[in-house]
Amino acid sequence: MEAVSDSNWLMQYRILRLVNQCRRLIQSEFGEKLHLTDDALREILAQFAGRSRNQALQRVYAELRLALIDLEGQDELLSAPAAPTGQRRYRGQVIPDAPKAHTAEPVASGADTAVRTGVTLVYRGQVQRR
């Protein structure tokens, strides 16, 4: 039954037009060429639309999603897996925590400890301690 459903959603002209627009925008932004014969085309489109910073792709995918809901009814929301708590992200990618250096520092006065909080910052690839 699912295979029949998968082949029917591409038979609608409006939906096919939206899918082709998404494919063109994905090709221009990510360099990935998607084919209409891909088995998981809907999931791939959802993943790329979720990662995209292109407003046009997000708008076209939202239109596609609404058209699919009109055609087939409500479906489950496809989303990227959530990062476990404690992990930091940069542009959607999980970044590893910096290794904590255990160095013996001399005991400083109260004014010095207020300035040195032990925070490690990464700015343009350079590690800076504060």
Score class of each variant (00 low, 15 high):
5 S>Q: 15
5 S>A: 12
7 S>Y: 14
10 L>S: 05
14 R>C: 12
16 L>Y: 10
17 R>T: 11
20 N>Y: 01
22 C>A: 09
22 C>T: 06
23 R>N: 08
27 Q>D: 13
31 G>N: 11
32 E>M: 07
32 E>L: 05
34 L>A: 03
36 L>S: 09
36 L>Y: 06
39 D>V: 14
39 D>N: 12
43 E>Q: 14
43 E>G: 09
44 I>T: 08
46 A>K: 11
49 A>Y: 04
49 A>Q: 05
51 R>T: 02
54 N>H: 04
56 A>Y: 04
57 L>M: 02
57 L>G: 01
58 Q>G: 02
68 L>Q: 02
68 L>M: 03
69 I>F: 01
70 D>I: 01
73 G>F: 04
73 G>M: 07
73 G>H: 06
74 Q>I: 13
76 E>W: 00
84 P>N: 02
87 Q>C: 11
89 R>D: 00
90 Y>D: 08
92 G>C: 05
92 G>Y: 02
93 Q>L: 00
97 D>N: 11
98 A>Q: 06
100 K>N: 13
103 T>G: 11
111 A>V: 14
111 A>P: 07
112 D>A: 10
115 V>D: 13
116 R>G: 05
116 R>I: 12
118 G>V: 14
124 R>T: 08
124 R>L: 09
124 R>N: 11
125 G>S: 01
126 Q>F: 04
127 V>I: 12
130 R>S: 01
